[in-house]
């Protein structure tokens, strides 16, 4: 594939991967705003284990690109301290399973300082972490933690599913006045490229993206599972079924209006999530549909999700993570119950 594509005869727009888009957003915002710093384990000279922070140390120096000791509680807590002082901290947690030590700091403090001080203090910070499985990584490296944070009041939770969305949403997350948990889909990090212009334009943090419109079925997903969901929509199109695909992307707060409007049109909905099924974010969407969309439904709302078991090690992870076959099976059930 060509390295760049031409956009209406102006400057070439770089064709980049999702991880490069994450890198671009941080670099871009650090250039624009001297109050932005990044911190985390191995993010300086090493450029981060996934290379998300590559080049930032050279460009912005040790003061703003902070290699921390190996201590996730510290990373989250230091980000909180920085953010209370007007420094916009963008913290990296190396792998999703190591977000757990941050939960105490994030839930008990980052999400509450504004509330606890009646608006006197706030925590405009971002915690970025790779999320979900499928890359044959060791134990604790493949967890899907979006629901853990999305359930907590006071946080925003974002899961991008493409390079362009990663760029625009990360900019928005950094600029947002409240704490944002930004979970990046590891298996999409280098899966495909997209032209992403470094135009400094943020995407909204409170609305779903309609990936494609359709009339017969609404497919809802976010993060890594968006890839399989898009493939399913392609397959269904070949069979004459027109699926509307919605990328929630900004899980919390949840934009139900877009989903409800879609289901009002299609009458059928399948929600795809990699995180465990019980009490997952797919359940939150389904519950909202039950409350507010029941009368437009021709068939039950279906969830395709990770199983309620420990994320297996690499050899069995493909049996755990939902895929096109599992999504299609639920879709077919819907059309059996409520034929087109």
């Amino acid at each position: 594939m060509a390295r760049t594509v031409q956009k209406s005869g102006v400057l070439p727009v770089p064709n980049i991967t999702l991880i490069e888009a994450v890198n671009l957003a941080m670099a871009s915002e650090m250039r624009r705003d001297p109050n932005v710093v990044v911190l985390g384990e191995d993010i300086g000279r090493n450029g981060g284990v996934f290379r998300a922070t590559l080049g930032l140390l050279d460009e912005f120096g040790e003061g703003r690109v902070i290699d921390t000791p190996l201590a996730e509680t510290l990373v989250a807590a230091m980000a909180i301290g920085l953010s209370t002082q007007g420094i916009k901290a963008v913290a990296e947690i190396q792998f999703s399973g190591f977000l757990y030590p941050c939960v105490d700091q994030v839930v008990n403090h980052a999400a509450r300082y504004r509330n606890r001080t009646r608006g006197r203090m706030s925590c405009p910070l971002v915690i970025r972490a790779p999320n979900s499985g499928g890359i044959h990584a060791p134990e604790h490296h493949s967890e899907s933690l979006e629901t853990t944070f999305a359930q907590m009041p006071g946080l925003r939770v974002v899961c991008p599913s493409s390079p362009a969305r990663a760029y625009g949403l990360l900019l928005a997350a950094i600029r947002d006045p409240d704490p944002v948990i930004f979970l990046e889909p590891t298996r999409l990090y280098r899966l495909f490229k997209q032209p992403v212009e470094d135009d400094g334009e943020a995407l909204p943090l409170d609305s779903c993206f309609i990936d494609r419109s359709g009339a017969d079925l609404t497919l809802v997903s976010w993060g890594a599972m968006m890839h399989d969901t898009r493939l399913v929509a392609d397959q269904l199109a070949e069979e004459g079924i027109s699926a509307e695909v919605i990328d929630i992307a900004t899980l919390k707060p949840l934009d139900m209006a877009t989903i409800l409007a879609s289901v009002a049109k299609t009458g059928r909905c399948v929600i795809v999530s990699e995180s465990p099924r019980a009490g997952g974010w797919a359940s939150e969407v389904a519950a909202n549909l039950a409350e507010h969309g029941l009368l437009s439904l021709f068939a039950p709302v279906m969830r395709v999700a990770g199983y309620d078991t420990v994320m297996p090690l690499a050899q069995l992870e493909r049996s755990y993570i939902p895929d096109t076959d599992r999504i299609l099976r639920e879709v077919r059930k819907l059309f059996e119950m409520a034929p087109k």
Partner: peptide
């Protein structure tokens, strides 16, 4: 274990390893 197979953490009965702890990846 490093090959992604949980069965590698089931250390054989009759050895001291059987009552030892498995590898731990979340540091400390």
């Amino acid at each position: 274990y490093w090959g992604g197979d949980e069965r590698g953490m089931d250390y054989p009965a009759g050895t001291p390893a059987h009552h030892d702890f498995p590898l731990s990846v979340p540091i400390a």
